[in-house]
Simulated assay, not measured.
Amino acid sequence: MSDANGQPYANGAAYVDGQYYPIGEAKISILDWGYRRSDVTYDVVGVWNGAFFRLDDHIRRFRASMNQLQLSPPESDEEIKQVLTKLIRLSGLRHSYVGMDCVRGTPPAGAPRHPKYARNYLVCHALPWIWIAPKEKIDAGLSLYIAGPRRIPPESFEPRVKNFHWGDLTRGQFEALEAGADFAVLLDEAGNVTEGAGFNIFCVTDGVVATPSRGGLDGITRMSVMELCQELGLPLGVRPVSAEEFRNADEIFGCTTAGGILPATCIDGRILGNGSPGPISSLIKDRFWNKRAEGWLATPIDYDSPL
């Protein structure tokens, strides 16, 4: 779909198996195992003010996820970077949500019906920036709810491999909605918190920051928060965090590519502090976006050179 000026990539751009498309024209086969079995891994990198944030870290994690699932598209890491950059340049977006998927297709006729024999290919897209929640709600603070479904355990599927297995998180999101909360947080079988629906989590008690050590994604924004804690001299523990500790914390915040730092002001109906984002959450949030504005770990995009 083009905009009023006839720009075919105005709503976003996509790359599917070696070809570029306007976002509305990109397709994959409904027979591919990436669709039928969720046999796919992905990553998402943000573009803000015309620059990727931590692009190398996202590509490195994407490749590690592909290796874990024995997925191997023809593109090298450098070629994937070139694809993502071209998508941004085609779209002209200065603030963008940029996804990269590696999809397992199907085995060719006559081959065993085993994933080893299925072709792998790359699917990427660039869209206008997506906030995980409205910006005004992020600024005011989110409401969280510890839902009943337990997170898929690492023994079943390693959560550090980004995946589309969202059945547990989706159930949790419906429970959170029914409870009047914005987002669900899930526990593991031991009763410790793991992660939220699309974001990592932190809590603060007596000035000490903690984040779960098991059961969630090793988020790139989470890594950024850990680095900021060190920079700010904030004590940080990466360890099991019980539901009780989480519910009774002085502050709670999440973090994700699609939103940065996400202060919470309510957990299971309990108002945190005075109902406003806490001082440590706010300090980390402000430092995160200020450093981003200064070009922290940025890869600028050249919009002007020929495509």
Rank of each mutant, 00 (worst) to 15 (best):
F253V: 07
G191W: 07
A181D: 14
S242N: 14
V238I: 14
C203M: 14
I201T: 08
D188N: 15
E245C: 11
V204H: 12
C266L: 15
D168P: 01
Y145L: 06
D250N: 12
S242M: 10
L228A: 05
R171W: 04
V208W: 09
S213T: 13
E251K: 03
A179G: 08
L187E: 15
Q230S: 05
T170E: 02
T194M: 05
D168V: 01
T194Y: 03
T170R: 00
P235M: 08
F174E: 09
G260E: 11
C229R: 03
T205M: 15
F183R: 05
G207W: 12
G273E: 00
A264K: 08
S213D: 13
G198Q: 07
T194D: 00
A210E: 04
G275K: 01
G254T: 02
S213F: 10
R171K: 03
G275C: 03
P154E: 10
E175Y: 06
E195H: 00
G260V: 03
T211M: 10
G141V: 09
T265I: 15
R247N: 11
N163Q: 07
F157H: 11
H165E: 09
R214E: 07
G198F: 01
E245A: 07
G172W: 00
F164H: 07
A184R: 05
N274W: 06
P153N: 08
L217H: 04
A190V: 07
S143F: 05
M223G: 15
S213G: 14
G180V: 14
E195L: 01
N192V: 11
F246K: 10
G198I: 00
L272T: 06
G180Q: 10
V204D: 08
V241N: 09
P263D: 00
F246Q: 01
D206F: 09
A184K: 05
V204I: 15
P153S: 10
F164K: 04
M223F: 14
A179F: 08
C255A: 13
L234A: 02
P149T: 15
V193H: 04
A176T: 11
G172A: 03
E244P: 12
T257A: 05
R270H: 12
C229Y: 04
E227P: 11
Y145P: 13
D188Y: 12
R222M: 01
G216C: 14
I252Q: 00
G233H: 02
G273F: 01
L144D: 03
T257L: 04
Q230T: 12
N274V: 10
F253Q: 00
A243V: 15
R247T: 11
S156I: 15
G260S: 07
T170D: 01
G260Q: 04
